[in-house]
């Protein structure tokens, strides 16, 4: 069958809502786009362990210590599920990691910001995981089987992440005046960056149209961002916190919250590598990988010796 015919059949399958599995025929661009998207997602989970990991040893109660540990552990697990799903497309995890460490692959730029206070733990769970949930809920219905299935698993675990973040937020907001100030400051530092997580408006996003046609992306960046804003504004009101946007107001007609202008220059600058923590995040991942090399090698050497003996 000709490439054109195959492509036609493939797109008919997508249109009919069929799920594409690893060994099905797929256009090379579909495979490439998925590898890019999925590996970026996996890298984000793994790098995403670092901002919160920064506060594990300073968690202020035994319960918070355990919950934060469990959350960061989940993020490692999520990275793993998605690397695992990406490998079904015919690429090694080793190669994906190499791309992250040498800077050719990207990860969500939100993780290039520093966590400066315990309150950041609240806001990250509430905003960053909250944004991730909006995105992942959509991806759970995407056309590529292994990715969709990984998303379903992740969505189940992610709900606890947002809840614990909001719980920390509420505790601080209703706590001492110093605690309230701490959480309000964190909100001020993370709000706009969280809105940027959804990416620029699709007209400025080169990949969106194709991804939508192939049902890898089912909603536009702006739609998802709007959903996140609409969910979050009442949540902020409920705990007496203000979002740092003087232009934020409810449009009575549409039922949606209008918000102010996002500073996309900052976004692109961070994507380029000039954010506050880009270098440190990659350095941490390089160190873990390099310092752990002797450990991984030892395990392989042992297993080879034992195979010889069997």
């Amino acid at each position: 069958m000709s490439e054109d015919k195959l492509l036609e059949q493939f797109e008919k399958r997508i249109e009919a809502g069929e799920i594409i599995e690893p060994k099905d025929w797929m256009p090379d661009r579909y495979r490439k786009q998925l590898i890019r998207m999925m590996s970026q997602h996996a890298h984000s989970e793994v790098v995403g362990m670092l901002p919160e990991g920064n506060w594990i040893t300073r968690a202020p109660s035994l319960r918070r210590k355990m919950v934060l540990l469990a959350k960061v552990q989940d993020e490692a697990g999520h990275g793993l599920y998605i690397y695992s799903a990406t490998e079904t497309l015919g690429i090694d995890r080793a190669e994906l990691i190499q791309q992250l460490l040498d800077g050719t692959a990207k990860y969500s730029s939100i993780f290039n910001y520093p966590t400066l206070s315990w309150a950041d733990m609240g806001v990250i769970g509430w905003f960053v995981d909250g944004a991730a949930i909006v995105n992942q809920t959509m991806l759970a219905k995407c056309s590529y089987g292994p990715y969709a299935r990984a998303m379903v698993r992740i969505c189940k675990e992610e709900n606890f992440h947002k809840k614990q973040g909001y719980e920390i937020t509420a505790t601080l907001a209703n706590g001492t005046p110093e605690q309230h100030e701490m959480i309000q400051d964190a909100v001020n530092r993370w709000w706009w960056q969280s809105l940027m997580m959804f990416g620029p408006s699709d007209k400025d996003s080169p990949n969106s149209a194709e991804l939508m046609r192939w049902k890898v992306k089912l909603k536009s960046n702006d739609e998802l961002r709007q959903r996140f804003v609409d969910l979050t504004v009442p949540q902020a009101k409920a705990v007496n916190l203000t979002l740092p946007d003087p232009d934020l107001k409810l449009n009575e007609e549409t039922g949606h919250y209008e918000y102010g202008k996002i500073n996309w220059d900052e976004f692109w600058n961070v994507v380029k590598g000039n954010g506050p923590m880009n270098k440190e995040r990659i350095r941490a991942r390089i160190d873990a990988h390099e310092n752990g090399r002797w450990v991984r090698e030892a395990a392989i050497a042992y297993s080879e010796k034992n195979q010889k003996n069997n």
Partner: peptide
Amino acid sequence: EKSEWKVWEVFTQLKTGEPHIHAGNVHAPD
């Protein structure tokens, strides 16, 4: 470099009596 572990596919049985279902993979040396 001999530091990359093999891929193992994982199947889990959620309750006794049910079949094992593919869950994903892990990397491991053995």
